[in-house]
Write a protein that binds this DNA or RNA. Structure first.
Lengths: 190, 190
DNA sequence: TGCATTAATTGACATTTGTCACACGTATTC
DNA sequence: GAATACGTGTGACAAATGTCAATTAATGCA
């Protein structure tokens, strides 16, 4: 989504330092996964950074009661990884699962950090990605804490309508932090 | 808190590039504020990055119904700013208010970005700060969405006990996303 | 195509948390 | 030091959302 802001950042990198850009992008590999596949399992150390070319994926954990908590959905153009594990190289507490057949490219984590160290421009690229990422997290925090179930649904309707078309309600409700039943009832009265 | 991880990062910067370190730290200015003072008002563009030396501050917004949403508390050693406004230079949707007399240093935003561009090591410094920041945001997201009122309180008790000593219950409850009354009742039965 | 599995809907009811009103004690201030 | 504002505690009640169970709709697979 977001009309390929990631692509724009990559273009910027290319303009700034073509050598760095080429070295970075030439280490991209391609892959694909079917619906239901676990791209990053919980408890494993995450060593790759993914860029989704097509399809949909979800980032999730399990709560204490065994139910699922969905922290984010990823669509075409999105960069994704199990962020905390990627940075810290500890076992991941979040997993990534494909929920619609997907194609993607990926880079090994080491390449990201090596090139960040080698090229200032690559470091800048990642700093800017992180800036966007934390903005999104901050907005989501407010969204989750400050809005009622109905307000959350209206927010999605207005700001992320593609979710409604491409994500099952079961998953959407978990993303909103409400039950399927509540979501179903809200939809009925909208 | 976090036993001055920020200080560690600054030391690292110094070791990597002393010139950059000196240029960065020499543009720090000092300031102080009394309890109740608004360090960063809502709707203003945020142009400074603060490091709290002593005291406590809160980052907050107002919800649609006028009640307060507290996104974070800052203590000695914490870096703080209105993140989204700082990055985007748009009017801030969050404010920062002093809730215990504070001393701090601050750097103009422009210096941060100029030095990030000028020195690779400074860029790395900020990238790492952002990595920590997004990890914290991610954990807070899970905390808010996945836990009940009582679980949230127990989590604070266990992981952020200093909050209980230095933050009024009114503010703490807002941080937890529950009402004062609910917090009061939970405390009674603990 | 048809069977089997999964997702969504719906109703009755339970639970959690919020709201409102008021009492009480503690700071703050003039 | 009295007066005022502010933070906290508590009770009665209301509202929002969750839980459980059953039914229907949709989807995927043989």
């Amino acid at each position: 989504m977001e009309d390929n802001i990631l692509q724009q950042k990559l273009e910027l990198l290319k303009k700034k330092n073509e050598k760095a850009y080429l070295e970075f992008t030439s280490s991209f590999e391609v892959g694909s996964s079917k619906k239901g596949e676990l791209l990053i399992p919980i408890d494993k150390i995450c060593t790759k950074l993914y860029i989704l070319k097509s399809g949909v994926a979800k980032q999730f954990r399990y709560k204490e009661d065994g139910s699922e908590y969905i922290s984010w959905f990823n669509f075409e153009g999105d960069m994704m990884t199990s962020h905390i594990s990627f940075v810290s190289q500890k076992p991941s507490i979040e997993g990534i699962k494909i929920i619609e057949d997907s194609e993607y490219t990926f880079v090994p984590r080491d390449v990201c950090y090596e090139l960040s160290e080698k090229y200032h421009a690559v470091e800048t690229f990642f700093r800017e990605i992180l800036e966007m990422y934390s903005q999104a997290a901050e907005e989501r925090l407010y969204f989750l804490q400050a809005l009622s179930a109905k307000q959350k649904y209206d927010y999605i309707l207005k700001n992320m309508p593609h979710l409604l078309q491409r994500v099952p309600q079961k998953e959407l409700s978990s993303f909103l932090g409400i039950t399927r039943e509540t979501l179903s009832r809200i939809r009925k009265h909208s």
